[in-house]
């Protein structure tokens, strides 16, 4: 990690430990470069009662470069069924790619994803889910997404 990324992550972690936004919980950040957070949509939504887990991986160029953010998919976790979320947990959101800005912090990313879920009217996988998942790179940061719309 570079000096800037370590400094920034330590500050973000201290703030998150003081208190997360509603519906967001820090699960684990033993390694400063890999954090797990859970998110759920509070109030009425198609995901009522579901809790998802997000994994953030921060590279040495964070926050100048975006973190790698995926929904955890394993025996106990599923990715939400959403038009911008692939079944392998990869998320197609411009703020995690071409529109990343260091203004966005870990909690800001969580809030954005939370509202992306909250505003979803119908549970559906992306139309190209099968093709994408078959050939997807290990990290979504190596994928070149065509962002489906401007709202996320």
């Amino acid at each position: 990690m570079s000096a800037i990324s370590t400094k920034r992550l330590q500050k973000e972690l201290a703030e998150i430990r003081k208190g997360c936004p509603a519906g967001i919980t820090l699960l684990e950040a033993d390694d400063l470069a890999v954090w797990f957070l859970s998110i759920e949509v509070l109030g009425e939504s198609v995901y009522k009662g579901e809790v998802f887990s997000l994994r953030f991986k921060f590279g040495p160029r964070y926050p100048i470069e975006s973190p790698e953010v995926v929904f955890v998919v394993d025996n106990t976790h599923q990715a939400p069924i959403h038009p911008h979320v692939y079944s392998n947990g990869h998320i197609c959101a411009s703020i995690l790619g071409s529109e990343w800005s260091p203004v966005l912090s870990t909690s800001a990313v969580c809030i954005t994803l939370q509202s992306m879920l909250a505003s979803c009217p119908k549970k559906e996988r992306p139309t190209d889910n099968d093709r994408y998942v078959r050939t997807a790179p290990l990290s979504p940061k190596d994928a070149r997404f065509q962002y489906h719309d401007d709202t996320v």
Partner: peptide, 13 residues
């Protein structure tokens, strides 16, 4: 808001 987020704050734009 959209302009600033998408074309000012975004790195590399």
């Amino acid at each position: 808001k959209r302009f600033c987020e998408g074309w000012v704050e975004a790195v590399g734009r």
